[in-house]
Nucleic acid binder design. Structure first.
Length: 255
DNA sequence: TAGGCCATCTGGTCCT
DNA sequence: AGGACCAGATGGCCTA
């Protein structure tokens, strides 16, 4: 979101009264009698237990100081969230080779003029996808080790130059997030050899965030083109991946 | 128009 | 004491 276009921020930057845009009644942040100093400058506790020292009397902040302090805190929080979004965009760039508009971090819902079609991944989708990708990489690594072991046994350790599997490009390596378009079968095959200990509290609900570290976490997801067919969407209500559909006919790892 | 997604504000808590 | 982190609340924008 464009910071300057945000009326609240504008009000902040222009030192307009806090909570201006809204009525006082429906403002949990600014209830009637709201006083920043109650937090920033807490009054001595009533009903202190015996033996406790009363809190050190603190300097009362003037309204201007309170406002300035509030601005400072808000600004910090804004910065923190913007940094988080930058990191999220960096992750999107890795996870989504299409449709991502990296500079859109602060103007979230707008499409850039020249940007490729397709909606930006939501934060939750980005995280879920990244998790799947990481798990998949892990399982690939394990599979690779297993195959390497087989080859070594077959050829005798340290006797051959380069295993032919390598030359043949037959490794089940992941070349990119797009390879998350895998069938359940292939994923399970790959995942079977791995033993992650990840657990998820959402297990029961989401096939992508599911119990079995690998088995279900690697439930196949598939990119579908923006606005396309409207295949089944993850029903969990947690990830709600809008651009993925569970696939049953995707390419498999070469064997 | 409802629902999803998001940015921001805010107060609470924990840490340094 | 001040900053970081978190979660709840709120309102705006967008899409189906």
């Amino acid at each position: 979101m464009n910071v300057l276009s945000n009326p609240v921020i504008r009000a902040q930057e222009q030192s307009l009264p806090l909570c201006g845009p809204r009525s006082v009644q429906d403002l949990p942040h600014c209830p009637p009698g709201f006083n920043l100093s109650s937090r920033l400058n807490p009054a001595p506790m009533l009903g202190l237990q015996s033996g406790q020292r009363p809190t050190k009397p603190q300097r009362e902040l003037s309204p201007e100081e309170q406002q300035e302090l509030r601005r400072k805190i808000n600004s910090r929080e804004r910065k923190r969230m913007q940094d988080l979004n930058i990191a999220m965009d960096a992750l999107r760039e890795v996870m989504v080779p299409y449709g991502s508009s990296p500079s859109s971090a602060s103007s979230s819902q707008s499409h850039q003029p020249g940007a490729p079609p397709g909606r930006r991944l939501s934060k939750i989708s980005t995280l879920v996808l990244a998790r799947n990708y990481i798990l998949l990489l892990g399982s690939s690594l394990q599979e690779m080790r297993r195959l390497l072991g087989e080859v070594s046994v077959g050829m005798g350790v340290n006797t051959g130059p380069v295993p032919r599997l390598l030359l043949a490009g037959g490794w089940p390596l992941i070349s990119g997030p797009s390879q998350l378009l895998l069938t359940q079968e292939s994923l399970l095959t790959t995942a079977a050899s791995s033993s992650s200990s990840t657990s998820s509290s959402s297990a029961a609900k989401c096939p992508l965030l599911s119990p079995g570290p690998m088995e279900a976490s690697l439930a196949p997801v598939q990119w579908s083109s923006a606005g396309a067919s409207g295949g089944p969407v993850c029903p969990c209500g947690v990830c709600r991946l809008p651009r993925f559909s569970h696939s049953t006919s995707a390419p498999r790892f070469p064997k």
